[in-house]
Simulated assay, not measured.
Amino acid sequence: MSIYEIVIIGGGAWGCSAAMNLSKRGKKVLVLERGYLAYTQSGHTSAIIRQFYSHEETAKIAMLSLRYFKDFKQKTGFDAHFRQTGLLVISDDSESIKRTVEVLKKIGAKCELLDKDRVKEIEPSISLSNDEVFAFEPDAGYVDPIATVWGFAQCAKGFGAQILEGVKVKKISRQKDWIIESDKGTFEGEKVIVAAGTNTPFLIRDLGFNLPIYLFPFPMCYYRRPYGAKSLMRVIFDSTNNYYARPEGESEILVGPMHDEMTYAESSAIAVDKNLYWADKNPDWIGRIDFDLSSAYSRALSIRFPELSEIHPSRDFVPLLDVTPDWQPIIDELPGFDGLFVACGSSGHGFKLSPLIGEILADFVISGKPPSFARAYSLSRFRM
């Protein structure tokens, strides 16, 4: 049985990015994926790339990741098909918008408040109300999620990483090194990263550790753009009506719900509900949107963009998200388990952060210490 320096469980954006960064540094890396690459969350994501966060550490990582996506082909040798559209944010909460814009300006990201006339220049057919406020992030856009994960993986393989698909990990245990038992045999690693998305809490539970993770359904629906319609050719966050939307090429629009991001206060740890909402769920579950929800999205879009009143659903899916109580990721070495690292709780942000998350994990695993700006993602922030 071969002994690897690092075994990564999970072949999504985080796992493959970590594999690329570790293998570039000469580490002997094995990735185990229970399905195919980008099997669940990474393959069922809006893939919006933006920096618009009020959480400063997350905004920094998003900013650096966006820069990486712009140079993805140069850095990996593969194309993530980044499309820079800009992000228009619409809200009736002026204080929240202004606070987020100030955070972005503080870290050096481009973002500005707009008046109604300027918004009309960006989206001429949009309908606006007088009590709304607007912000615009010009560098935002979206990528092809499958191409992104594939690019990370192929680059990792080019530096010597081994990637095995269709390997379902059953148990992680510790002897001299870490032992990973699967349906395809047993593997051994000096260190292990569990970056298995919604499956992570199930794998860690067998070690007697309950991660503060909730699994929530997150619906997304694609609509056919009416013939000749030119509205919504950029990413839109309409928090007034609780949805986001982005173009999908020239002929479709992707729509999904916005969620409430709880603000993390460093001065107090966050209490964790012991009744975690994942124990009875299938981590590979992918659902469908019902007619009432897809119709609600259609109505919301047509109110904001009258030109889109005839849009029609074309396809949809409802993946599960692994969410933490403060809607921020967990990147940490599991307390009491030296050499076992968890990267989970992406909370809907994970894909856009993946270039830097891979670097953070590589630094953490090699040095034993997380980069300073990633310490906000420690498990210690939760009272467990």
Rank of each mutant, 00 (worst) to 15 (best):
E5Y: 02
E5W: 07
V7N: 02
I9F: 05
G15L: 00
A18H: 05
N21G: 00
S23E: 04
K24E: 11
G26S: 04
K27L: 06
V29E: 01
L30P: 04
L32I: 04
E33K: 08
R34V: 06
G35A: 02
L37N: 00
L37F: 04
T45C: 13
A47E: 09
Q51T: 15
F52V: 10
S54D: 14
K60R: 15
Y68H: 10
F69A: 05
K70E: 15
K70V: 10
F72V: 08
K73G: 13
Q74D: 14
H81M: 03
Q84W: 00
V89F: 06
S91E: 07
E95I: 12
I107F: 05
I107H: 01
C111Q: 00
V119Q: 05
E123I: 13
S125H: 12
E132K: 13
E137F: 10
G141M: 03
D144R: 12
P145S: 13
A147C: 00
W150G: 08
C155Q: 04
A161M: 04
L164Y: 12
L164G: 00
E165H: 04
E165W: 05
G166Q: 07
G166S: 03
V169D: 00
I172V: 15
Q175P: 08
I179A: 01
I180F: 05
T186H: 01
G189I: 07
K191E: 10
K191R: 15
V192E: 12
A196G: 13
G197Q: 03
G197E: 07
T198Q: 02
T200P: 06
T200N: 11
T200F: 08
I204E: 07
I204K: 01
L207N: 11
Y227P: 08
Y227E: 15
A229I: 10
A229D: 14
S231W: 10
S231R: 02
V235C: 14
I236G: 05
D238I: 04
Y244V: 09
P247M: 07
G249K: 01
S251W: 09
S251H: 08
E252S: 11
E252K: 11
P257N: 06
D260K: 12
S267P: 00
N275A: 13
N275G: 02
Y277E: 14
D280T: 14
D280S: 15
P283D: 13
I286Y: 01
G287I: 11
Y297D: 09
Y297I: 04
R299W: 11
L301Q: 08
F305E: 07
F305G: 09
E307H: 04
L308T: 12
E310I: 07
R315P: 06
R315Q: 11
V318C: 10
V318A: 02
V318T: 14
V323L: 00
V323Y: 01
T324M: 10
I330P: 06
I331M: 12
E333V: 09
E333N: 05
D338W: 11
F341H: 07
V342R: 07
V342F: 06
C344I: 10
S347L: 06
F351S: 00
S354A: 15
L356D: 02
I360N: 03
L361S: 00
F364H: 07
V365A: 01
K369I: 12
P370C: 11
A374V: 07
A374G: 08
R375A: 05
S380I: 02
R381L: 04
F382K: 04
